[in-house]
Amino acid sequence: MVVDDSAVIRGLVSRWLDAEPDLKVVSTAPNGAQALRLVAKAEPEVIILDVEMPEMDGITALPELLKLVRGVRVLMSSTLTQSGAEISMKALTLGAADYLTKPSSTREANAVEAFRQELVAKARALGEAARRRSSFLRSTPAAASSAPAAAAAAPLRKPSSLYGGAAVTTRPAGALRPQVLAIGSSTGGPQALSTLLGPIAARLDVPILITQHMPATFTAILAEHIAKATGVAAAEAKDGETIQSRRIYVAPGNHHMIVERQGTSRILRLTSDPPENFCRPAVDPMLRSVAGVYGGSTLVVILTGMGQDGLQGSRAVTEVGGTVLAQDEASSVVWGMPGAVATAGLCTSVLPLGELGTAIERLVKGPAMAGVR
């Protein structure tokens, strides 16, 4: 379903999506009020929802749309501005799955094509995720109401896939106590980051490095949200700054964030190297550099996201003796990034988002081992 007050945008988006053999636009609407009248009959799996519209805007319509269609994934569409970024972040906290940033003009061919590619990729991924979840809940109704098992006293357990998909194998945790926590995330990541770090960040005596797939402007606002959720100093990383414990560093949009050793210090570098996995910032460059500097005392967590970014970096971490955890399919908006590392056999554990914090704390606060670098 496409909801936008611009007839031009509705037409473009509808044509792009209908041109894909596996996608179909079931309805369109010029504002949120009209979308509410149409959505129950249309039963979309994904809604492309504009932020600014007359009569009823996207933020007002969002929670009502989520109530009317169980399991629908909402993709917010906004301009790449400070205001647009703040509204998109608010939408994510209200239950939107992801966002799109509109090109400033339909005359900018490269920007329009990039928008089209992002739109199609995200609509497809969110639709597939919604379909799998719906299929699972129909086949096992009890799963819809079952709560995650308490993890406080349990050992790091082997994973299971909610949908019975690809098999995963696990490996032992690294022998060294972690001195850094590196997190990679994409679609669904902003919500997952706050949920994961909110209860535990203030109790972790290690630096936390985050690469979230986001454009410039958005990453600064993400850092502010994380700081509020955790009570820990969080900000976009600055080139050349020394890494300190009990601080959270977010890779700024359009820059890779990597770690270098400088004497006895570890510092952050921002680079404009080419995108990896079609992303900048990308998770793989961060993880490769962390593996090179922190070695086996690296702890990696891969959260919800499209694609496979983080797979090669996680492999580099395990090769030097570090530990990788991943979010499970059940709690992920899209099980692309965590699924890639899980099915590659790189993880010590694959856990629901609500259990990952306990696992992180147990590893970080475990007994110090000799030979920590």
Score class of each variant (00 low, 15 high):
S6V: 05
A96Y: 01
V25F: 05
V290H: 02
Q34Y: 09
A229H: 08
R280D: 10
E329G: 15
V290M: 05
M56S: 07
A251R: 04
A220D: 15
K365F: 04
L80S: 10
I302Y: 05
D309M: 09
V250K: 03
P148I: 10
A29E: 00
I87P: 02
A109P: 08
M369D: 06
G127W: 09
M214L: 09
G240L: 11
V324R: 02
F136R: 01
S194Q: 13
D328I: 15
I183D: 03
P352N: 01
A220Y: 15
S134R: 10
W16Y: 10
S135A: 15
V259L: 03
K24P: 07
D239E: 13
D273G: 15
L303T: 08
L325D: 10
F278G: 03
D328W: 01
V3Q: 08
V293R: 01
E43C: 00
L193H: 11
M1N: 09
S146L: 13
A96R: 02
R107D: 12
I221P: 05
E108W: 01
A153T: 15
P155N: 15
P215V: 14
I360M: 13
S77N: 01
P21N: 06
M306N: 07
D239V: 12
G336Q: 06
V8I: 10
R15P: 03
A33G: 12
A227S: 07
E361I: 14
P178G: 10
A114R: 08
G295Y: 04
R315W: 00
R73P: 02
I210E: 03
V180R: 04
P207R: 07
D284G: 05
L38I: 05
M306L: 08
P159V: 12
L209N: 08
P367A: 15
G58S: 01
G58R: 01
E236A: 06
S186Y: 01
G84E: 04
